[in-house]
């Protein structure tokens, strides 16, 4: 799709300068996960681990098919299983591939204090540049989907890269290629949105009136989208946020108080300097010394 190099950044973390904008006509990519076609086989997890050379620990059985139990620095995508009884009393097994949503307005990137640690390419992929990461975990606070994980070993944050290394040479991500039932599709965001529309109509024809596309506006839309049978209740899909957006706290902490704080500090320094050059130091004069000796001397006499 595109050669993902420094010139292709459209957003860079902790950077006051505007990224290069000359190449402003870039096809945005998107990964569409059609939960109604997903059989929860974890081929995407397996392919992701194999392609990215990730091997987390062999865990234990914890009460469901969710293995490993949570995203980790070396678990970039994960099937989350939810046994749900619908209104008709029939059981539905909702299985959702969790992982980075590659938001249009990434909370991680906004929260990140390290310059160049998180970048967004022109095609929409949000990537962690590990060598610039300082391991502070702000990205975890910024992300509305609770995705980034900071490693306890190298103190760097990790998440799905949408296989930027494959996409940059024109291949599709590893999970997309592996998915046996074609539940994960990859292409331009326009194509994927249109294809999702067809899938939603087809699902509606099968009795899922509330089928819909999950492309949350709260984060400006995402480059990883879901087709859900029950788009009116995303939370039943193992906690998919109803209306994800960057937290107001993060917004405020990363927005207004930055300039205000700097201004406040600069003002104080300036005021002090101005006071110094106008009022000047408060020095002790001879009279004060005299009063002091006088006081001491009289006290000496009383006690002697």
């Amino acid at each position: 799709m595109s050669d993902l190099q420094a010139q292709d950044f459209i957003r860079i973390s902790a950077t006051t300068l505007t990224p290069p904008t000359a190449r402003n006509h870039e096809q945005e990519v998107a990964k569409l996960i059609d939960v109604s076609r997903c059989i929860g086989c974890k081929a995407c997890q397996s392919a992701c681990m194999e392609w990215n050379n990730l091997r987390p620990e062999v865990g234990h059985f914890e009460g469901s098919y969710d293995n490993p139990m949570d995203l980790e620095p070396s678990v970039w995508t994960l099937m989350r299983f939810a046994e749900w009884e619908n209104e008709k009393g029939d059981l539905e097994w909702l299985i959702r591939k969790d992982g980075c949503m590659h938001c249009e307005d990434p909370g991680c990137l906004k929260a990140c204090p390290a310059p160049g640690a998180i970048v967004q390419y022109a095609n929409g992929i949000v990537d962690f540049i590990s060598e610039n990461c300082i391991g502070c975990g702000y990205c975890e606070k910024g992300c509305p989907f609770n995705i980034p994980r900071v490693s306890k070993v190298d103190h760097k944050s990790y998440k799905c890269t949408l296989c930027s290394d494959r996409v940059t040479v024109g291949l599709e991500p590893a999970c997309v290629k592996a998915c046996p039932t074609g539940a994960i599709m990859f292409g331009s965001k326009a194509d994927m949105t249109e294809w999702a529309g067809e899938r939603v109509d087809e699902l509606k024809s099968r009795g899922f009136e509330n089928a819909g596309l999950y492309d949350p506006p709260g984060v400006g839309g995402t480059h990883v989208m879901y087709v859900l049978q029950h788009a009116d209740k995303p939370a039943i899909y193992a906690g998919l946020p109803e209306d994800p957006h960057i937290s107001e706290f993060v917004g405020f902490w990363k927005g207004l108080i930055k300039p205000v704080a700097l201004a406040g500090m600069a003002f104080t320094a300036a005021a002090a300097f101005l006071h110094w050059i106008t009022v000047g130091p408060n020095t002790v004069d001879a009279e004060d010394d005299h009063h002091a000796e006088e006081l001491i001397r009289s006290a000496k006499e009383k006690s002697a």
Binding site: A269, A272, V279, P281, N282, V284, D288, D289, A292, L295
Partner: peptide
């Protein structure tokens, strides 16, 4: 910043916290 400037502004205060003593006049 205010605390630091105050120490500079009121001469003798710096010495009070570095050397530990002040002149009686300062105290007065």
């Amino acid at each position: 910043m205010i605390h630091v400037y105050a120490a500079i502004w009121v001469s003798g205060s710096m010495r009070a916290m570095t050397q530990g003593y002040v002149t009686p006049g300062w105290a007065w």
